[in-house]
Every structure is written in structure tokens, then in C-alpha cells.
């Protein structure tokens, strides 16, 4: 994450900062003050992440079940080997990547359309803004329940609304349809967030350039692809990065809607099951470490492939 640079500093402080001894003292004091002010935040953030991560690294070298503590045994990298050679680990990872790619792509397309509408709209702004924030603010578990029940063949409405789908069709009986239901819930909840980020990006596109393109006789499509999208590149990439990492960690919807049945497990869910449900602290810790590493890899790939400039990024 070395690509992060500091946000620009504010206002007037730089003026009159010269290399005099007096100022150098002030610089020192400022340095001290700055460190003191960020210390509580740093300590808190590391307490809850660095220490547990170190502990996970340590535990991942053991065969260790919480319910049979006496059988604890050092196995070196055995747990990693087991995990990495297990087909379940890879199908789960693949499934997670699939969910990430599909949901982010769909969210991007729909979110962009929403952003275009909101950008142009002059009336009812408050109403739209309020509505679009409701999915954003709603609890993911609630969204999962809402869609699970909507797709249910005993109490839902989706079957009766969709043509070509039998009324008693069971969406949660096989992988393909279960995963669609899960992705619908995920996409519904997070598209508004995507569209707001894109809306901010749209605002950066200069109207003058659009006018000029129009005068030059550019079609709507040409304006979209030659003017609007290139100018929004930074906004799109930042939105994609944060949503992709979020989607990669998908857990709540799967837990609520299928509990991992029919191969719908994500890598987060698999890890949770080992550690929290099966109390397999050894191999579960190994999975935790692998999950963390894979998030770093995904982040790295996105940053490199799409050349995201994180200096302008702020997570939302």
C-alpha cells in the first residue's frame, strides 16, 4: 500500500516556515503534537488487527481443536498444505471471485445509469437522495432476509412475477439460482453507494467540454465514451476498488440466505465455519491468513491492472 500519499495539507500553515532555529523548534513541537494526536487511533487499529493476525499466524502452525485442547500438536505448514491442496478451498475462492466480478460489473453499469439520471435531474432531488440512501443504510442481514423471502416459493412473490418460472420453483435448490438470489441481494444493497461515488465523478466532468463535443457533432455514444468516461476514470476506479474488496469479503448474505448450501460458500464463510462453527482453530487460522493474503492480492491486482491512483482515494 505504499502508493498512498498524504492528503494535501490545509491552508495557511506553510507560509513563513523558514529554516530558522525558532521554527525548527516549532516543527519539532508540531511533530510531537501530531504523533500524540494520531496515537490513540493507531493503537486501537493495531490492537484489533495486528495482534490477532500475529496470533492467527502462530495458531495456524498447529493442529488444534477447541473442543479437544489436549490433542494440540505442532504441524508446521501442514495446515496451509491441506488448505491449498483442497479442492474446496479453490472452488470457494473461485466462487468468491465470480461473485466479486459479476456484482461489481452489474453495479457499475446500473450505478452509472442511476448517476446519469441523478446528475441531470433538477426536481425531486431530496426524494431521490433519500430513497437511494435507504438500501445503503439498511442492514445487510435485513436485505438478505428480504430477498430470501422474496425468492421463496412458499411465501415470496418473485416466482409469480417472473414469466417462464413455475410458481413452485425452488430458487435455493441448486447452485446457479441460489447464487443469483445472493447476488441480487448484494447488488441491490450496494448499487446506491456505487452510484453516489460515480455521481461525484460525473460532477467533475466539465460541461464546457461536453458542449464543445456537441458542437463538433459528436453523437451521444461518442460523448459518453470519448469525453465522460475518460474524465471519470479516477472516480470509476476508486469505486471499483472499494466495492470489489467489499464484495470479495461477502459473508452476511450467504450466511442468511443459504448458509453455504449448494456450493454457494465464499472464502469468508469457509473461514468462519472452520473457526467459529467447527472450532478448528489450527486450520481455521491458516485459512484466516490465506484470506488476508488473498485480499491483499486482489487489492494489488486491481491497483496495478487498473492503475488506480490511491492518492485521490478515500474509502466510503
Amino acid at each position: 500500500m505504499s502508493t498512498v500519499t498524504a492528503p494535501r495539507e490545509g491552508g495557511t500553515r506553510k507560509q513563513g516556515r523558514k529554516e530558522t532555529p525558532e521554527v525548527s523548534d516549532r516543527l519539532k513541537a508540531e511533530n510531537n503534537l501530531g504523533r500524540k494526536l494520531v496515537a490513540p487511533a493507531i493503537v486501537l487499529m493495531l490492537l484489533v488487527t495486528a495482534f490477532p493476525m500475529a496470533r492467527a499466524l502462530y495458531l495456524s502452525l498447529f493442529s488444534y481443536t477447541l473442543t479437544a485442547p489436549d490433542d494440540r500438536e505442532f504441524v508446521g505448514l501442514g495446515n496451509y498444505l491441506t488448505a491449498l491442496t483442497d479442492s474446496l478451498f479453490w472452488t470457494t475462492t473461485l466462487n468468491t471471485v465470480m461473485i466479486m466480478v459479476v456484482t461489481v460489473f452489474v453495479e457499475l453499469v446500473i450505478g452509472f445509469a442511476f448517476a446519469m439520471v441523478m446528475h441531470r435531474v433538477v426536481f425531486a432531488r431530496g426524494v431521490i437522495r433519500t430513497s437511494i440512501l435507504i438500501p445503503y443504510g439498511i442492514i445487510t442481514v435485513v436485505s438478505g432476509f428480504a430477498w430470501q423471502f422474496a425468492f421463496s416459493n412458499t411465501n415470496g412473490f418473485v416466482n409469480s412475477w417472473l414469466p417462464f418460472v413455475a410458481d413452485d420453483f425452488n430458487w435455493f435448490a441448486q447452485y446457479e439460482t441460489s447464487i443469483i438470489a445472493i447476488m441480487v441481494s448484494e447488488i441491490w444493497k450496494t448499487t446506491p453507494f456505487m452510484s453516489l461515488l460515480l455521481l461525484a465523478g460525473l460532477a467533475q466532468v466539465s460541461e464546457d467540454m461536453l458542449e464543445a463535443a456537441k458542437v463538433d457533432g459528436a453523437t451521444w455514444f461518442q460523448r459518453l465514451f470519448k469525453v465522460i468516461l475518460p474524465n471519470m476514470r479516477a472516480a470509476i476506479m476508486v469505486a471499483v476498488l472499494f466495492r470489489a474488496l467489499d464484495a470479495y469479503r461477502i459473508f452476511d448474505n450467504i450466511f442468511v440466505m443459504t448458509a453455504g448450501a449448494n456450493g454457494t460458500e465464499s472464502i469468508s464463510f469457509l473461514t468462519y465455519r472452520q473457526v467459529i462453527e467447527q472450532f478448528q482453530l489450527g486450520i481455521g487460522s491458516a485459512l484466516s491468513v490465506l484470506l488476508f493474503l488473498s485480499v491483499l492480492i486482489v487489492a494489488f491486482v486491481i491497483v496495478k491492472v487498473f492503475r488506480v491512483d490511491l492518492s485521490n482515494a478515500r474509502q466510503g
Partner: peptide, 9 residues
């Protein structure tokens, strides 16, 4: 950070 990888420890 993937929060799930923290809950165990």
C-alpha cells in the same frame, strides 16, 4: 481488512 480472519483470534 477481511474481518472474518480476525474473529477467531
Amino acid at each position: 481488512f477481511p474481518v472474518v480472519s480476525l474473529v477467531g483470534p
